[in-house]
């Protein structure tokens, strides 16, 4: 599904990703963990094509296509979804309008007919229910006046609505209490269907208690320094990231 080879990327003048390799197959859940500043969020932005995030070197293929040559919206339409760590507000545009435009833009790109208002509403109501958001959420402005937890749940609601091929969750657990975390995780788990893949970016192991990954990668100083199964996350939980500093230095030496 996604193959990243020797990726180097910079933000402004600073190189953040320095030789990252990753292979994700359909249906797999990969957790990417790492200390602050390791480049975790940057990876999500580079993959989704955000302006200002410049690829210096490397290749990324997504279902056979050269991802790096595609526009942001083309990547989205091809099935790449990013759940934002800090979703931005769009005042005056209701969640409903926003999602309707979005769902239909995706459908159009796939050569499908637009959803009727009734079909859309049915789908939207079901998605709201799944992440425990009241229906009047659909009428409110996109993220306008939402609490941190509501914003995160809203992102998962969008994930459910848009049915992407690959979803990148950028610290979808940050700032959530255990109950909200459970709701977010349930929403994500409901979308695991054996075909859809996930990249779960997180600082803490906590989220991985609820969303069990197939692989865990430790990202430090712009590259994956260690990969393993779910047990690797527990290791991090026990010993933190302090050991990384030495490992990194050792490697570079």
């Amino acid at each position: 599904m996604l193959t990243i080879k020797d990726l180097h990327a910079r933000v402004e003048e600073k190189t953040i990703i320095k030789g990252l390799n990753l292979e994700i197959k359909p249906g797999e859940v990969h957790a990417i963990m790492g200390p602050n500043g390791a480049g975790k969020s940057t990876l999500g932005y580079v993959l989704s094509g955000r302006e200002g995030y410049e690829v210096e070197q490397g290749e990324v293929t997504f279902n056979g296509a050269n991802l790096l040559e595609m526009e942001v919206e083309e990547r989205a339409q091809a099935g790449l979804f990013l759940a934002f760590q800090y979703p931005v507000e769009i005042p005056g545009v209701s969640n409903m309008e926003f999602m309707k435009e979005s769902v239909n833009a995706m459908r159009k790109a796939r050569g499908e007919d637009e959803l009727s208002s009734a079909e859309f509403l049915k789908k939207a109501k079901a998605a709201c229910k799944q992440v425990n958001l009241p229906l009047d959420f659909l009428k409110r402005g996109v993220n306008e006046g939402f609490s941190g937890g509501e914003k995160k749940r809203n992102e998962i609601m969008q994930l459910i609505m848009l049915e992407p091929k690959l979803a990148i969750l950028d610290e979808s657990d940050s700032g959530l209490d255990v109950d909200a975390l459970q709701v977010v995780a349930n929403g994500v788990n409901s979308q695991r269907d054996g075909k859809r893949s996930f990249i779960v970016v997180t600082h803490y192991q906590r989220l991985l208690d609820f969303i069990e990954p197939d692989y865990v990668h430790i990202l430090a100083q712009g590259k994956i320094v260690k990969s393993g199964g779910p047990e690797l996350a527990k290791e991090v939980e026990a010993s933190g990231y302090a050991w990384l500093g030495q490992a990194q230095e050792g490697e570079e030496a």
């Binding site: 919206e73 435009e101 833009a105």
Partner: peptide
């Protein structure tokens, strides 16, 4: 903002549609 535009594009909207939606909301 760049953030608003990026959010819209990440949700599959082209930049023109995104700006007109943001302006209409305003």
């Amino acid at each position: 903002s760049d953030d608003q535009l990026f959010l819209c594009q990440q949700r599959g909207l082209d930049p023109e549609k995104a700006v007109s939606m943001i302006v209409n909301g305003f």
